[in-house]
Write a protein that binds this DNA or RNA. Structure first.
Lengths: 265, 265
DNA sequence: CATAGGGCCTCCCCATGGAGGAGAGTCAAG
DNA sequence: CTTGACTCTCCTCCATGGGGAGGCCCTATG
């Protein structure tokens, strides 16, 4: 009979771990001295200890080891574990890719995050603007028209409103543009305005701070980021207006989010 | 000014997370209502929130994000993180390899664990035995001789004693064998017996239960395991005797550990 | 025989990054 | 005024032990 310290040295498990494994019921001492409370192990238990240790080294949880000892299908548990490990690895690869991308970027002005935009109902309208700068005059006019068509219409909370640029390429003039705004329920459309259900989508997002004249850099960054890290665009980017001329005096305080829909998986 | 729920929906961070980030000092609300205690955020803080979110998605700890905000070198932290992730990936690959190896094995009789055997002093002696079975007569005789040469010599605690089979191949007769036993201090050697310092070594270990006639299977398993999972043997395997004829009546209770030294890294 | 030191016992706190919930105050709409 | 939706703080929980306090047990040594 071995005291816990001796068994610890033979099994290469710490005393703390041995006591913990007893509490969890996956490695019980052969006996316990009723007077002193000392745990007593036998050399034959080294095999069981090695088994527990082997499973722990594979990353199995105490719960899983307990299940195996209770007669669960080892193969199935190992197969599931392999699947989980493969998924973990995929996450790590993705993070490594992103970190390397960030390290290559000199200024690190932009930070990309991944979000899920839930399903929603929007009204949309398209037009061609002579100049990019005309957006901020055009948007309010659509809102007014929509409200005239649908009195009592309510915008979603939180508000969500964005523009997509439908030209394949970037252009300064004659910009084809679509504006959408989320609402609580569908309403009546018109020549100009169409209601539709926008499905949930996963997006990559960056925030652009400052006036719009350098927003092209944010787009360029986001596109390069997606390409280099294995994301695949699932539609045109959305430009969401958060702070702007309507609530901030200084152009420096303007804040715009660019969301690039990516494949749901 | 936005209440926490509104900011939560805009930033895609949970209310719980926002409160937690305030407590940790990495994302403070713009102000707090002194009367009600309500946290109040501004839209401009969405950028900071996105930054925190981006770093969390990369797996940076709160501590690391705090360091970055305090002006630490982002590049250095990201580089370290990349190193840590690469290491994690290496571990996962190793585990996956082992799991696949286990799934291929039909019976799963053996479990391999990895241990580190510390540096120690042993006395060793070599011989050629006519039959494998003679081991258990030979070993005690060396022990006696060594004790005669070095009265007062003490074996290490925990005891550690093993045989290595020095023939390149497996053989039944004329077995070249080396026996070693750990002691507390070097002593006087002889023609037969030599003291030496055994360096620390990492080993793969399996336990074999039962009589010695099927121990070859354990060796075969261990060797195949090492080969298939990318370990490289760093010396002959060690056969450690734990339970045997000297303390267990029944052959079924005999317990032997086989340790295969592997490259330290 | 007395004491010292090492081993062992139980019990409690700690880490990560929030999630979940209790109990109570706040706010806006009907 | 009531109701329901938010918000506040404070507590516990997850997994796997590590670290340490306070106290008992055993053995060796002076």
């Amino acid at each position: 009979m071995l005291k816990i310290g001796e068994f610890s040295r033979l099994s290469h498990l710490t005393v703390k771990a041995l006591r913990f494994y007893e509490k969890e019921g996956i490695l019980l001492p052969a006996s316990t001295d009723k007077w002193t409370g000392y745990r007593l192990y036998e050399t034959a238990q080294l095999e069981a200890a090695a088994s527990v240790k082997a499973y722990r080294q594979l990353g199995l949880s105490i719960e899983e080891i307990r299940a195996i000892q209770a007669g669960a299908d080892v193969r199935q548990i190992l197969t599931e574990k392999a699947k989980a490990l493969t998924e973990e690895k995929r996450v790590i690869d993705s993070r490594l890719s992103i970190i390397h991308h960030m390290l290559e970027d000199r200024e690190m002005r932009y930070q990309v995050t991944e979000k899920t935009i839930p399903e929603m109902i929007v009204y949309s309208s398209e037009t061609v603007l002579a100049q990019h700068m005309d957006i901020m005059r055009w948007i309010p006019s659509i809102g007014e028209e929509c409200l005239r068509l649908n009195p009592g219409m309510k915008c979603a909370d939180p508000p969500y409103e964005f523009c997509e640029f439908l030209d394949g390429e970037y252009r300064e003039t004659d910009v084809k543009i679509r504006h959408s705004e989320a609402v609580t329920a569908a309403g009546k459309g018109s020549d100009q305005i169409r209601f539709r259900r926008l499905p949930a989508v996963k997006v990559l997002s960056v925030f652009h701070k400052g006036s719009y004249d350098r927003i092209g850099e944010a787009y360029a960054f986001l596109m390069r980021y997606a390409e280099q890290n294995g994301f695949h665009a699932a539609g045109p980017a959305r430009e969401c207006y958060i702070d702007g001329i309507w609530n901030k005096e200084s152009e420096e305080d303007w804040l715009t989010e660019i969301q690039l829909p990516i494949d749901w998986r």
